[in-house]
Design a protein around this nucleic acid. Structure first.
Length: 791
RNA sequence: GCCGCUGUGGUGGAACUGGCAGACACGCACGACUCAAAAUCGUGUGGCCUUACGGCCAUGUCGGUUCGAUUCCGACCAGCGGCACCA
């Protein structure tokens, strides 16, 4: 009787024509809502069933807020640069500048088929020059403010594909595309100085309404640890004068310094010593070169079996004044702390393994007033440090830190490596001139456009170096021949600022005007998958802090509220994958059941943030429910008003606000099951409540009831608190906590009234309460009375 | 190894702040309508015992706190996710 395809098409066209979801120009600051989805990464395989889950949630929220009179900004765009697209282009031979617009077209059509209320006039595309002009501008902003710098760094290198790989493309130490073991290669790279904001990135997490696990992951990623820097002076430095005469180590356990029986330095630090004149023994040189060639895979495999080499240099332990050996081992990382450690084998598992293997001394540290902690095997001698006055181990730590060094806070977070030797990304707007050095591309010359006269097949260099039109330029300062930076930016740079652009997407003068940013930002609600817990969400926070520091914006955090959507698994409960053959195609579902059923089913499946298996069988229930709604509306047999609608309004409103879409859908079903007689105005309220969930069907039924305006422009129903309450309640009677019966009562009775009611009920005699020894009575208003009796 | 999350009927899941465990839906069974089927509507549906009234058991396992625990605490088991030689 209802052709869902027909009505969905009809209304989608009409809504678009009449621009009913257009963003207001001048939002009321007190009534603005910026509701954002993580924009999709564009790939050739199109939309999967996971995408619409989060989009439906934000759509419902946006629609309800519009109906409540809020000014809503609800946009969508495309994350369109990046490696998967480029790899697909390499495989098929079709250039990405041709395929990407086609994929976007497909994504847009698929997304539109769900009837989401995006303002399509604000669509952005990170691979369009209008957009990446500002990505480049922001790069230069960071560069000019000392927040972008270039430095040699080792990168992942696939020897078979002859290309650099992003960290995300290295799976268990191998190239994700061809399975070849990845090597490390030293190249000159661009970095963003995210470490300038470390402490702020950590502490302001506490102010955010984000899922706790996501915040925890960010904290772990930032990796703050408190410890000390301690200097160990070196003795007998072989044959050189100017090299350092001490080693500085970082430790979180300065209280174990009495047990430090040797030092270990990283191969990188050893190389630095050689660079300043240390004539290292042959075996040391060999070890360093071997370590630098080691693949990620080998390093991972070696965590149990450590390797190292004796430098033959010695140091003095400042606590014991003993002469101790200095070793080189690659279990000490050059990139963390000072690249050197004091080894305390009795209290550190790694040092213990190393000491056992190379037969180095093991000395336990015993504090006079408390137990030995985390001690490995009773070798070596016991010493009484005798020096601790601290009551606890934490005071002992800072005491020793102060005595032998300085307290220091160390983080794991490193600067963000943003250059990629790849084609499909935003070019880095830097020019190298032999005479003038590194130069920014002048602002009026932006964007630096990606050339199309390139062979984008990877050869080991960025494909851009092989484009003459791109590569050979004049120096902006002296006008002599110069060359462009041939790297492109990591796609995460593009997605770190797109939410700013949405506030002012067509601005030709600025990345977004201060005025528009001030009006709409920060984002009130952000919804997306938990896989972006660290990278994207940390980078976006970093960009926000930079723009705040440079006074473009007045806020310090981009996303006030974050909610995650869970994975949608295959019907077999496993992750959907082509190889497993359990992928559900959203186009087919829409074709057969329609967008409204799809939307409602995804909301009904379970809590938004949980991983849930797909069940086409289960979707039938939603199909039946909407059929029921149609029959009810069409019957047109309305009765007198029913106060139950107030309860429903209250429940749906709060469920949407609290992201409990699954119970909201259940509430609709329950309501329809229980209320067979409704007034027309109650029924219309029902349709309005349902409109954010099933926008097409409710619009159709609304208009059939004789309305001319769209239901989506209606006012959200209000409820009367006093009518939203039950006036009859069932009170549980229990004895010693076990349920023994129930009585019906008016709501709001006092303890005494309730007791009187029980005394006069049949239950009183049945439970033989008169003859029981009642020790205590627990009364919970409108819910329960519990008699504690002595048996 | 470290950090985090999850565990409830045949299935997806519900349960406000510690107060009727299993809402809602799927599936299944029976019934109505039908020549029949589909669709629709109705009834039932955690397990065990009982003709029945009713009772006992039950939220991964074992313990604790409490008048009362799916909910709080402790230990363990299983699954998922993140990080991983970070001193």
């Amino acid at each position: 009787m209802y052709d869902h395809k027909e009505i969905e098409k009809k209304w989608q066209e009409k809504w678009e024509q009449e621009k009913i979801y257009k963003t207001p120009k001048n939002p009321d600051p007190a009534k603005k809502r910026y509701i954002l989805d993580m924009f999709p990464y564009i790939s050739g395989s199109g939309l999967h069933v996971g995408h619409p889950e989060g989009y439906t949630a934000t759509d419902i929220l946006s629609r309800m807020n519009r109906m409540r009179g809020y000014d809503v900004l609800h946009p969508l765009g495309w994350d369109a640069f990046g490696l998967p697209t480029e790899n697909f282009a390499i495989k098929t031979g079709n250039p990405p500048w041709e395929t990407t617009p086609k994929y976007i077209e497909r994504f847009r059509n698929q997304i539109k088929s769900f009837g989401f209320s995006y303002d399509w006039e604000r669509e952005v595309n990170t691979s369009s020059p209008d957009y990446y002009k500002w990505t480049q501008w922001l790069f230069l902003l960071l560069y000019k403010n000392g927040l972008a710098y270039k430095k040699e760094a080792s990168v992942n290198w696939c020897p078979k594909d002859q290309t650099v790989l992003a960290n995300e493309q290295v799976v268990n130490g191998a190239c994700e595309r061809c399975g070849t073991v990845v090597e490390q290669k030293l190249l000159s790279q661009w970095f963003f100085k995210i470490t300038d904001f470390t402490e702020d990135l950590l502490t302001s997490l506490d102010t955010l309404d984000w899922p706790e696990p996501i915040k925890q992951m960010q904290r772990n990623w930032i990796g703050r640890s408190e410890g000390a820097l301690i200097e160990f002076s070196l003795t007998d430095i072989p044959g050189q004068e100017d090299a350092k005469h001490f080693v500085e180590v970082f430790t979180t356990r300065p209280d174990t310094i009495f047990g430090a029986t040797f030092l270990v330095i990283s191969p990188e630090l050893a190389q630095k010593w050689i660079d300043v004149g240390w004539r290292a023994p042959q075996e040391v040189v060999a070890y360093i070169s071997q370590a630098s060639k080691k693949t990620e895979l080998v390093r991972i495999a070696e965590t149990k079996d450590k390797t190292g080499v004796d430098t033959k240099i010695h140091a003095i332990n400042p606590a014991t004044k003993e002469k101790i050996a200095v070793w080189i081992a690659d279990y000490v990382l050059g990139s963390y702390g000072t690249g050197a450690i004091m080894a305390v084998p009795a209290h550190d598992e790694r040092d213990y393994v190393f000491a056992k293997k190379y037969d180095l001394g093991i000395v336990k540290v015993i504090k006079p007033d408390h137990e030995i902690d985390d001690c490995y095997e009773g070798e070596g001698m016991l010493i009484n440090s005798g020096d601790f006055t601290g009551e606890s181990s934490s005071t002992a730590r800072s005491e020793m830190a102060e005595r032998f060094g300085t307290e220091k806070i160390q983080y794991k977070l490193r600067d963000w490596l943003v250059s990629r030797q790849r084609y499909w990304g935003s070019p880095i707007p830097i020019i190298y001139c032999d005479k003038c050095g590194m130069q920014s591309v002048p602002e009026q010359d932006l964007p630096v456009k990606l050339p199309t006269d390139v062979d984008f097949l990877p050869t080991g260099e960025s494909p851009l170096t092989r484009s003459k039109s791109f590569h050979d330029v004049k120096c902006p300062k002296c006008n002599e021949p110069a060359r462009r930076d041939s790297d492109t930016m990591d796609t995460f740079v593009d997605s770190s600022w797109y939410f700013f652009r949405f506030t002012d997407p067509n601005n030709l003068e600025e990345f977004a005007s201060k005025e528009q940013m001030q009006k709409w930002l920060p984002v009130d609600t952000y919804v997306g998958g938990a896989e972006h817990a660290v990278l994207h969400l940390l980078y976006a926070r970093f960009f926000t802090k930079v723009l705040n520091k440079l006074e473009y914006i007045s806020f310090n955090e981009p996303f006030k509220q974050l909610r995650n959507q869970g994975l949608i698994l295959g019907p077999d409960g496993e992750k959907m994958s082509k190889s497993r053959g359990n992928v559900v195609n959203p186009d087919e579902i829409i074709e057969q059941y329609g967008a409204d059923v799809f939307r409602m089913y995804e909301m009904f499946m379970g809590p938004l943030e949980d991983a849930k298996p797909w069940s086409t069988q289960g979707m039938v229930g939603l199909s039946r429910f909407l059929e029921k709604v149609i029959r009810f509306s069409e019957a047109g047999e309305f009765a007198s008003s029913n106060k139950n609608i107030h309860k429903l309004i209250k429940r749906i409103t709060s469920d949407i606000e609290n992201f409990k879409f699954n119970t909201a859908v259940a509430a609709f079903m329950e309501f329809l099951n229980e209320n067979k007689n409704l007034s027309q105005s109650d029924w219309e309220s029902f349709l309005k409540l349902l409109a954010p969930f099933a926008p097409h069907l409710t619009e159709e039924l609304w208009q059939k009831l004789g309305h001319k305006e769209s239901i989506h422009l209606e006012k959200w129903p209000e409820f009367d608190e006093s009518l939203a309450r039950d006036d009859k309640v069932e009170i549980v009677i229990s004895i010693n906590g076990k349920k023994r019966g129930m009585i019906e009562a008016d709501a709001g009775l006092s303890e005494k009234q309730t007791k009187n009611l029980i005394d006069s009920s049949e239950l009183f005699a049945k439970l033989d309460l008169a003859n029981k020894k009642i020790m205590k009575v627990v009364f919970v208003p409108d819910r329960l009375v519990n008699f504690v009796v002595k048996e």
